[in-house]
Design a protein around this nucleic acid. Structure first.
Length: 603
DNA sequence: GTAGGGTTAG
């Protein structure tokens, strides 16, 4: 930092009276001008005025200057003015540092500067107070440096601020900032003598953000038992957990609860509700909510556009985007990701290309995610060679995600040599990333080259890697059930497998041919068929057929993309059993009805 | 004179 303060210098500074070259009236007028300042240009004028009046050594003025600047998002400007190497440390009090640290902690990419100023504060021998730590911990949460967090935790304990609820809550939040901090977050939370709604929300949102949605919901139930009232921010996190689980019934109950508890519906909560409905399969309800909103943010529009994209309703997504632009909302880069993925899921290749170029009209430079969407768009449309050329001409360095999209398409389109070459390169670059090996081994399986496929699997085993197991969730009577392939853990296991057998027989009569090439194992065809029948989605559907009245729609959520065979089988199941089956997979929704799927086999 | 938790993305 700028200057180390020696003890003698500090002593001199604190005992010396401030230089007075101005009157109380000048000081007061400057303070009220700063108070009223609402533009950066005015602030720069005030800056010169402060210097002219000799107020640059006035502590009150400097502090107010920092507060005004931070309200105008110009804290960098303020701090270069305030923290001059030749300044007397006496000028800096804890309130000034708090103002500066807060401003940096609130700005997403300047959080490390908050910590620099905290260090400067300590070096100036200014003692932090209980207001300082929530800011410091917030900055630390954003950086996610666990070691740093622990050391700040130590300081908090030493200074005795650990009894303060604000400090405790931000401490828990800080530990959630690093994925290795979960245990510590839990520990601090468990040891807290008192909680308020913020304490619970920090924990619930922590679990929700890490995708530990069951835990998030569980904690929300505990919160209710503990008798703490949830507020609108709690509900946003609870809804986001419902969204992740695809738990529509639970989500509907949450909406009911919000109404019953008279929780204020701010735009963020509306958005969370829209997102929940869209991603839990009820896109029409999401649209209805969106239409009934008074003031929408860009997130509201994006949520509906993404929802439409996931439902394969690309044309409507495009129309909504046009409506958004027409109504004067300036698109951001996230909405373009949604829009491009809408084009991709609906095969709107030309539209997608146009929008990709259109981004620049709004001063947006395509990022790697947008390029990824374009590669996806071309690959899905079968234009693998064009996608390959696109990657080679991309202005940005392609990332592994982009390459993996291409390899996947190579496998599907029969470009085995290219797929093999790229996935080998991917493994070289990212030797610890499982999906690179899975892609290569799938390519070999499609080439029927079992020897090479086994080699890849052996390498994976040696490195202790495993493919993420596919699982399917289903919600029934407020319970969420999860199945994995070949699952035998459920109490209705026997009945379920009998039902799977029955389903197999009935759909075979209706013309189903097991797509045994989808099973990436070197076993005989009969075994392959068996493996297919026991995929988690089929088990979940069997479970639903057993436990719900006839004609009730079935909703399931798969964690990976649905395989070709299950897709074909579910189409026929929907016809034979006269059931509407809504399936969310990793990428999108499939609505199976009367033997057809809403994705028109395009996914 | 100052404080904490939340939403959209392949």
């Amino acid at each position: 930092m700028r200057w180390p303060v020696t003890k003698s210098k500090l002593l001199r500074a604190t005992t010396r009276a401030p230089a007075v070259g101005y009157t109380r009236a000048v000081e007061q007028s400057c303070l009220s001008l700063l108070d009223a300042c609402n533009k950066f240009s005015k602030l720069t004028q005030l800056h010169s005025r402060i210097i002219k009046s000799g107020l640059q050594n006035n502590r009150l003025v400097l502090t107010k200057f920092a507060a005004t600047a931070s309200a105008l998002c110009a804290i960098d400007y303020a701090s270069t003015f305030i923290f001059l190497p030749e300044s007397d440390p006496y000028l800096y009090d804890v309130f000034l540092f708090n103002t500066v640290i807060r401003a940096y902690a609130q700005t997403s990419d300047l959080k490390s500067k908050a910590l620099c100023n905290y260090n400067l504060m300590l070096r100036c021998s200014v003692l932090p107070n209980k207001y300082t730590y929530p800011f410091v911990l917030k900055a630390c949460a954003g950086i996610g440096d666990l070691r740093l967090g622990k050391s700040i935790h130590g300081s908090v304990l030493k200074l005795g601020f650990h009894d303060d609820l604000y400090v405790q809550n931000t401490m828990v939040h800080m530990y959630w900032g690093n994925s290795d901090g979960v245990e510590l977050a839990r520990k601090v939370f468990d040891e807290m003598p008192k909680f308020d709604s913020v304490s619970w929300t920090v924990m619930i949102s922590g679990y929700a953000r890490l995708g530990m949605s069951h835990d998030a919901i569980g904690l929300f139930r505990e919160m209710q038992i503990a008798g703490v009232c949830a507020d609108e921010i709690t509900m946003v996190s609870v809804l986001s957990a419902c969204t992740d689980l695809g738990a529509l019934e639970l989500g509907k109950w949450v909406e009911f609860y919000i109404g019953k508890q008279r929780i204020q519906k701010k735009v963020e909560l509306w958005n969370a509700l829209i997102d929940m409905y869209a991603k839990c399969g009820d896109i029409d309800k999401a649209i209805e909510l969106f239409r009934s909103m008074n003031d929408r943010s860009i997130v509201s529009w994006t949520s509906v556009i993404v929802g439409l994209a996931m439902h394969g309703r690309g044309i409507e997504a495009v129309a909504l985007f046009e409506e958004m632009v027409g109504s004067g909302v300036v698109p951001d880069d996230v909405v373009f990701i949604g829009l491009l993925s809408a084009c991709s899921h609906s095969g709107l290749v030309e539209k997608g290309k146009q929008y990709f170029d259109f981004m620049r009209t709004f001063g947006l430079v395509p990022k790697i995610e947008h390029c990824g969407c374009m590669v996806d768009l071309l690959c899905r449309a079968g234009l693998v060679k064009e996608a390959f050329e696109f990657i080679q001409d991309m202005p940005i360095e392609p990332n592994p995600v982009v390459w993996r999209t291409l390899v996947n398409a190579c496998g599907a389109q029969g470009l085995m040599k290219l797929g093999e070459k790229i996935s080998r390169q991917l493994i070289k670059n990212q030797p610890l990333h499982e999906s690179n090996y899975v892609l290569l081994s799938n390519i070999y399986a499609k080439m029927l080259n079992w020897g090479k496929k086994t080699n890849v699997r052996e390498v994976m085993d040696k490195k202790g890697m495993r493919k993420i197991p596919g699982s399917t969730m289903i919600e029934l009577d407020n319970q969420i059930y999860e199945f994995v392939a070949g699952d035998r853990s459920h109490e209705q296991c026997e009945e379920m497998y009998q039902m799977v057998e029955e389903m197999g027989r009935k759909i075979k009569n209706a013309g189903y041919l097991p797509a045994t090439s989808e099973v990436m194992l070197d076993i005989n065809d009969e075994d392959k068929e068996d493996a297919l029948y026991h995929h988690s989605e089929k088990l979940a559907i069997a479970f639903a057929l057993l436990n719900t009245p006839p004609e009730t729609p079935i909703r399931i959520v798969k964690n990976l993309r649905v395989c070709k065979d299950c897709h074909a089988a579910i189409k026929l199941i929907s016809k034979v059993y006269n059931r509407e089956i809504v399936m969310r997979d990793r990428n999108r929704f499939h609505l199976f009805k009367d033997g057809f799927c809403s994705c028109r086999d395009f996914w």
